[in-house]
Write a protein that binds this DNA or RNA. Structure first.
Length: 1176
RNA sequence: GCCCGGGUGGCGGAAUUGGUAGACGCAGCAGACUCAAAAUCUGCCGUCCGCAAGGAUGUGCUGGUUCGAUUCCAGUCCCGGGCACCA
């Protein structure tokens, strides 16, 4: 009886399906084990042989664990929302749900062919409303949560509002806006809109107006990890920054926990490093350097204020006003004098100011005002810092046209910083103080709402990176920097601001204005891509302004440069050229003198970023090692009140909206611009069916075109109309929690029952590719932590162990085509002309490229194979030259590297008449190269073809045999023969072609038992450590040994079947059934066909054989006998022989005597059970 | 540039704690069976010298530690992956 894998595999796949062999119960006494694959996106191309690698590994492990007595959950599903289906829909007009369904069918079939043990009754599809209902539900939970930094966990919004009512937000600075501050009583005065806007600054899923990665070609925004080198990860389209209203997940709040969680999970170091890198936590200090007034000493003269010329005018007016000096103060350039002026003015208010102040100071508006308060370059009459509102009272001179310009400029300047100015005339204040107050109050409220909502400015939004609450000193004049090296503060030689930094326009001196403007222009004209593509060049400009070093008072010039990013830290750095290479390069380029604070450690030619040098020129820190100086510096900085210890993260909050159709709709409705969550009973918000997938108006998604769907007459009974959110969720939404749904896939009440979640718990083994290191894995970890904090599940890391499978690369094949070029023309104009399809075999190509074959030689060869027609085929004259170029050919036309010429001829009409110049032995050989498997390289191998030709068991074992699971390796179809031969050999241990089953009940010999138990040990060890390739070789060795021993004994062969079941389940089941139905055997007796439908006894549920060490115990060992470390001979000795006797035996050995040549050895090294070495 | 991996026959790879380098398989060569083919089986298979016995050499390169190094240490080159002006 032959090994008929086709019939066997089909039969058992059918049987297992019928008997529900893979159905898993949540109610089981056995210990649980959860094995998960990263579920696939069902693409139109189907699976290639690279995809199942991880699935096979997890399948083997699942089956192994099941045989070892575990209740194993091993599910599969589809990540079926996503861009490609939509792109395909745009191109072909087919609805994504149709193509997705079709693709899933195909995947199903392909996966089933390979014989995986998935419990398909638990299948999930992220695009199925019954699934995404719960994705939407979890989104609502994120929306209804905030991160309590004190308790380090997510809590419900209701808890937050309760706290606000009690104590305002003094202890809970808003992560979305660190300048937001209000008291309990202020909170109680807030209207609904203000409250909701305030809460939005805390929610874990929040809406904000911010800079996003906009991809025009895809018509959507992309998350940071979906942008690679300034272009989209999918498709490589350009990505630009754009400001849009977007949903975000506040992942930055979880930065620390995501970092700490890595300590508890078993991921590869590379994977952990990638995540740590992405999170990018750094410790340092934020320091404020105060601006120094322009000083004549520097020979630049005082910075000339644009309105200095107005002095005459002013004095004129002053004479008429009641208070001399006041007018001038308005335009005074900011310096220390401002404070004096302010104090002076407070003492001398005008009458109108006095009246208004009395009304404002006892909170007549409900908002706190200050008077005569310096703000940047100006002094405001009245200001409410909470809502950024300035109130000015204007005297008569403000009516003059010149003054109006000045006022407008002033208002604009303040507007740029964020202040709104409200102006009243003296008369109005004096005549209608109540009306003025009401107007101020109203504007305050508006300002408050606006400020709360509009503060998410994407990349410029530094508050989202700082976990430590509000930063000091806003509005105080100075340059705030973030540094990880406060110990180097005495080495600061200049400051650098990002070009976009808000201070730039305020501090630039008149002299430097042009230079700065030119530089800003230059920066603006450069796209993101240019900046990235360009080799780092040193550019920058000097602002003309200075700060002083708080420790030694040194004046430090302020520069701007592209190399400082607006989006990280404070957007400004203190440059220490002796310790930072970029600062060094910048200093050299612009001739800025460098201060050395590390003595000999600095060689003057490059920066030295060491932390181990001793500090010089560093005031009170002199003599300290830098590493130790850091806390000293921070303490001092905090003591002086000029800064504080600060933790920064590189990671940004995750954008959560896409302007696409094929994704989860948001369960959100807008009323008067405010987003409201729908209730659970409104879920799922089903994705409406559309016919066109074009973008909506103003960067909105396709859903915005569905007016009927968008407009809700009355979202909540008894309330006004609302508009649906038209964005959809990104690809990672559904995949962030799918592992939970498998545990309880049909639950209608909740996304996973707590009992089911408690039973299955963490995924014990997760297998997938490294490409999800910072995307899916990080988001999935975040969701798990939130759901754990909120009490839905009892663990906060989803995946206990992660194994990354490597890529299977394609092996491309080339043929070498002759082309004729016109050679006497410009390079660009060379016209390639194909006279006929002529292909040279590999060796000619190589020799031609090495110059060992010339054009004429090629012609001679061609003449031979074409029967003397070469010169008819290729018209030759001196204007032409010939060349050979490699072209990709589909691997299916090759047997190894030999071309199947007939098959190739048939593949395309132009090849039918092709001429081949073969090697001397008549074979046409191709070139081969290892490349990524892809359609365009014609090197894709489909698992379907392989399974059809060799069977699923062979395919499974071969994929494992290729090499270590986590390594990338090329596919080589030829090599599969070896594994297939092995399985046939394995089969022949049990079944004879003629006699049928030949398994006997004879007693096994010690040698046979040794083979079995050695194999048990090997397979258990190797499977346990995911070394599947060596396990397969272990099976081969066992089969070879047993065949040599002519062993056909049931006592050996039955346990062996169970061992191989995880790897090759079909053949194992077939043979097992034969053995089971023939319980008493004599030689030659055996059943042939095994009937279908026998589910009650199955090798899938057999008991795993137990290793018995006693069969492996050896009494003697053949030792390698080496002399001076080189093996010269071997010597078999009993293992229990004492050392002295061993040494005596060794000395008697002929080979040893020969090498000793009569001399006594210096030493004999004897390692019991390992080796013997004689040292002469 | 920084951070991780990795360099072993013609090829995929093995050597789990420092102890016989090249398991297992592919490809190749020689042979058996066969009218023939397929299938199967046997032998050889890192390189160099040698008929052989045997010897020399050999895990990217240069050193070191050790009785003994693919394995540990230092330096260096190359390949792959990740991050990339992150202060």
């Amino acid at each position: 009886m032959e090994y008929d894998f086709r019939q066997i595999e089909k039969k058992w796949q059918r049987t297992w399906k019928q008997t529900g062999a893979y159905t898993v119960s949540n109610d089981n006494d056995k210990p649980k084990f959860y094995v998960l694959d990263m579920f696939p996106y069902p693409s139109g191309a189907g699976l290639h042989v690279g995809h199942p690698l991880g699935y096979i590994a997890s399948d083997i492990f699942s089956r192994y664990k099941r045989l070892k007595g575990f209740n194993v959950l091993h599910p599969m599903g589809f990540d079926s929302f996503g861009l490609p289906a939509e792109q395909y829909a745009i191109e072909t007009g087919q609805h994504p749900s149709d193509t997705t369904e079709k693709n899933i069918q195909r995947y199903h079939q392909q996966l089933d062919n390979i014989g995986f043990c998935y419990d398909w009754s638990r299948e999930v599809r992220t695009s199925d409303p019954s699934y995404y209902k719960w994705t939407q539900y979890i989104f609502l939970q994120l929306f209804d949560s905030w991160y309590n930094r004190i308790l380090q966990k997510a809590e419900r919004i209701a808890i937050l509002t309760a706290i606000f009512e009690k104590e305002g937000n003094v202890n809970l600075p808003a992560p979305g806006n660190k300048d937001l501050a209000f008291t309990a009583s202020e909170w109680t005065t807030y209207n609904e809109k203000t409250r909701l806007n305030t809460l939005m600054q805390y929610r874990l899923a929040y809406l904000a107006y911010g800079e996003v990665n906009w991809c025009e070609a895809l018509g959507t925004v992309l998350a940071n990890d979906e942008v690679v080198n300034g272009v989209s990860e999918r498709g490589g389209h350009p990505v630009v920054k754009k400001k849009l209203h977007q949903w975000y997940l506040r992942i930055t709040e979880y930065g620390d926990r995501l970092l700490q969680g890595l300590e508890q999970v078993d991921f590869s170091d590379a994977m952990k490093d990638m995540q740590r890198n992405w999170i990018g936590k750094s410790q340092g200090a934020e320091i404020n350097f105060t601006l120094t007034p322009p000083s004549p000493r520097r020979g630049e003269g005082p910075g000339k204020h644009p309105y200095e010329d107005e002095k005459t005018l002013i004095s004129e007016i002053e004479a008429k006003e009641k208070r001399p000096g006041q007018g001038y103060a308005d335009y005074k350039v900011f310096n220390e004098m401002s404070f004096e002026n302010a104090n002076e003015n407070r003492a001398n208010p005008t009458e109108a100011e006095h009246v208004l102040w009395n009304a404002l100071k006892n909170k007549g508006t409900g908002f706190k005002f200050r008077r005569q308060h310096p703000i940047e370059n100006y002094i405001a009459d009245f200001v409410c810092l909470n809502v950024w509102l300035i109130v000015e009272i204007d005297g008569a001179y403000h009516n003059r046209p010149e003054q109006k310009d000045i006022d407008r400029k002033r208002d604009e300047d303040l507007q740029k910083i964020g202040f709104k100015t409200l102006r009243f005339t003296n008369d109005r204040v004096l005549q209608n103080i109540d009306g003025v107050l009401e107007e101020i109050r109203k504007l305050c409220e508006d300002q408050r709402s606006n400020r709360i909502t509009n503060d998410h400015t994407g990349e410029n939004d530094d508050q989202r990176q700082s976990a430590d609450g509000p930063s000091p000193l806003r509005g105080e004049a100075g340059v705030r920097v973030y540094t990880t090296r406060p110990d180097t503060i005495f080495g600061v030689d200049f400051m650098v601001l990002a070009p976009e930094h808000e201070l730039v326009k305020q501090i630039t001196t008149a002299d430097q204005q042009k230079e700065i403007d030119d530089y800003l222009n230059y920066v603006q004209t450069r796209s993101e891509r240019e900046r990235l593509a360009e080799v780092k060049s040193i550019t920058g400009a000097f602002t003309g302004a200075y700060v002083s070093n708080p420790f030694d008072g040194r004046e430090i010039p302020i520069w701007i440069s592209e190399y400082v990013l607006a989006g990280y830290g404070t957007g400004a750095i203190m440059a220490v050229p002796c310790g930072d290479q970029r600062d060094y390069n910048f200093a050299k380029h612009f001739n800025i003198p460098i201060t050395n604070i590390i003595g000999d450690a600095y060689n003057g030619e490059e920066a030295n970023p060491t932390k181990d040098a001793t500090l010089h020129n560093s005031g009170f820190m002199n003599g300290l090692v830098m590493r130790d100086a850091m806390p000293v510096a921070i303490d001092k900085i905090e003591e002086l009140g000029i800064g504080k210890h600060q933790v920064n993260y590189r990671m940004r909050d995750a954008g959560f909206s896409r302007q696409r159709y094929w994704g989860e709709p948001f369960p959100i409705v807008y009323k008067e611009g405010i987003p409201y969550p729908l209730t659970e009973s409104d879920l799922p918000v089903e994705l409406p069916y559309v016919d066109s997938y074009g973008p909506g108006p103003e960067g909105e998604g396709p859903l915005a075109n569905l007016k009927d769907w968008v407009l809700l007459p009355s979202p909540v009974p008894g309330e006004g109309p609302g508009m649906r959110e038209t964005n959809t969720m990104p690809g990672y939404a559904g995949s962030s929690w799918y592992f939970l749904r498998y545990m309880d896939p049909h639950n209608q009440k909740t996304f996973v029952d707590r009992k089911a979640a408690d039973y299955w718990g963490q995924v014990d083994l997760y297998i997938g590719g490294t490409e999800h290191a910072v995307g899916h894995l990080l988001y999935s970890r975040l969701w798990t932590k939130v759901l754990c904090d909120l009490g839905y599940i009892g663990f906060d890391e989803p995946y206990k162990k992660l194994v990354n499978q490597g890529m299977i690369q394609g092996s491309s094949r080339f043929v070498y085509k002759l082309v004729v070029k016109k050679s006497n023309e410009d390079r660009d104009q060379i016209k390639q002309r194909v006279i006929s399809e002529i292909f040279y075999s590999l060796s000619y190509y190589l020799e031609f490229k090495q110059g060992r074959l010339k054009d004429d030689d090629l012609m001679v060869l061609l003449n031979q194979v074409s029967g003397g027609k070469a010169y008819n085929l290729i018209p030759r004259n001196e204007n032409f030259s010939i060349d050979i170029v490699p072209i990709h050919v589909d691997v299916k036309y090759f047997d190894g590297v030999e071309l199947n010429i007939e098959g190739f001829r048939k593949s395309k009409s132009e090849f039918t008449e092709a001429i081949f110049v073969p090697e001397k032995d008549g074979k046409y050989l191709s070139g081969a190269e290892v490349e990524k498997m892809s359609k365009s390289k014609y090197n894709v191998v489909s698992p379907d073809d392989i399974v059809e030709r060799y069977g699923a068991d062979t395919f499974r074992m071969y994929e494992m045999f290729l090499g270590p699971i986590d390594q990338s390796k090329p596919w080589d179809t030829k090599g599969i023969e070896g594994v297939h031969r092995f399985l046939r050999k394995f089969w022949r241990l049990y079944v004879d072609e003629v006699k049928g089953l030949i398994v006997t009940n004879e007693e096994p010999t010690p040698a046979e038992l040794k083979v079995l138990h050695r194999t048990i040990k090997k397979i258990e060890d190797d499977t346990g450590r995911f070394s599947f390739n060596t396990a397969v070789s272990g099976f081969m060795i066992a089969a070879n040994d047993l065949a040599d021993l002519k062993c056909h004994k049931r006592a050996i062969l039955e346990p062996l079947l169970i061992l191989i079941t995880p790897y090759a389940p079909h053949i194992a089941e077939e043979l097992y059934q034969m053995l089971v139905v023939s319980s008493s055997l004599s030689p030659g007796e055996g059943r042939g066909e095994v009937p279908e439908g026998r589910g009650e006894v199955s090798v899938l549920n057999a008991t795993y054989p137990t290793l018995e060490e006693k069969y492996l115990v050896e009494s003697s060992k053949e030792y390698p006998l080496s002399i001076n470390g080189k093996v010269r001979s071997s010597l078999t000795l009993p293992l229990d022989m004492p050392q002295q006797e061993v040494e005596a035996q060794v000395l008697e050995n002929d080979v040893v005597q020969k090498w000793l040549d009569g001399k006594a050895p210096k030493k004999i090294i004897y390692v019991k059970g390992k080796m013997i070495n004689v040292v002469t």
